[in-house]
Design a protein around this nucleic acid. Sequence first.
RNA 1: GUGGGUGUAGCUCAGUUGGUCAGAGCACUUGACUGUGGCUCAAGUGGUCGGGAGUUCAAGUCUCCUCACCCACC
Length: 368
Amino acid sequence: MSFKLIKKDKDTKARCGVLSTAHGDTKTPVFMPVGTQATVKTLSNEDLLRSGTDIILCNAYHLYLRPGEEIIKKAGGLHQFCGWKGPILTDSGGFQIFSLATLMKASDKGVGFSSHLDGSKHFLTPEDVIRLQRSFGSDIMMPLDECVHYPCSKERAADSLRLTTKWAQRSKKEHGLNARQLLFGIIQGSTYPDLRREGIEKLLEIGFDGYAIGGVSVGEPADLIYEIVDNATEYMPEDKPRYLMGVGTPADIFEAVSMGIDMFDCVIPTRNGRSGTAFTEEGKLVLRNREFSSDFEPIDRECKCYTCANHYRAYIRHLFNTDEILGLKLVSLHNIHFYAKLMDNIRTAIKTGRFKTFKEKFLKNYNS
RNA sequence: GUGGGUGUAGCUCAGUUGGUCAGAGCACUUGACUGUGGCUCAAGUGGUCGGGAGUUCAAGUCUCCUCACCCACC
């Protein structure tokens, strides 16, 4: 289990590498489709493989609530349960507890919250969350963290960072010398560069298999996200994978890759897919729109995905217009393929020393 | 034929004793969506209030005529 840097870009901080896990290797920079409930909504594992996906993200909070730890354990772990044979990263649920559930209290001990499903009360310690992901058999585990909203006062952000750091220490201790499952540290600190830096230094002292930037894209403007990321990657170690949590749009990904980010996850391609918005190299296409009602072209002529090989825009618009579920799947499939292909192109561009040109060309052509 | 009821946006309907009464929901149109419930949110296009004539400063609202549909009784 390791992370190998293969190539560093000469013009930007972009890099290209391979992350090895117990369930296979992943080339970076990589985009991980979000499969919160142990399924990337509307897509089968075969769909994912065919669209070039090799690692997915699941969510410990959601799976803890349903179906619960016992059932997944009985199945033989998350991979057995959902049938995905490749690497799985599980998010701790920190973000969900602070956004979805009703937070009761966050203390040194852990976090008390009320389920977003039925209001039932729960209490999880950082150790619980590690044990949960251990029994899931996650390839990459994320520790419990506290995610603050934007804007956030410096005082509040500093307090929160202290809590997240303490939890990180305890998570690492609980994780021990488990080499089969990687454990990443999560950098918080809101929009304050000095807090972010302090957070990174503390995490480095503890020592993790990778480092994630959390607490971004919580309402702040895109430029501010880039500032935070650019600053953070200055202090993140070169020899460990860097993961930007919850980001982003194709433009965000280009910027973050330029700043040295290796891993991404975001609901955008699948959520937008379910609302009929497709990604293309020219920008987003809202396929629900009337202008496509008689458009007998694929979403993207150059695209090699199943959807583009077999269906017209007019048909997809019809499916959305009539609330047929196939529409959700066809556009999700295309979007996941688009993201996978985009990352593949980015990796190739970095390897061949053409990343800067590729990025400029892409962004010039892409209407965001 | 007689009596009663209903006609307001594409659909289902609110609209007090005449005076911000031209409205809602859905549909439709256009956006948004960044560690996910398929949701949701925002904005927008729709109507000579079945038609006509009166009363009044003022009429979906009151009066009369008329048309359409529904119900009951002959």
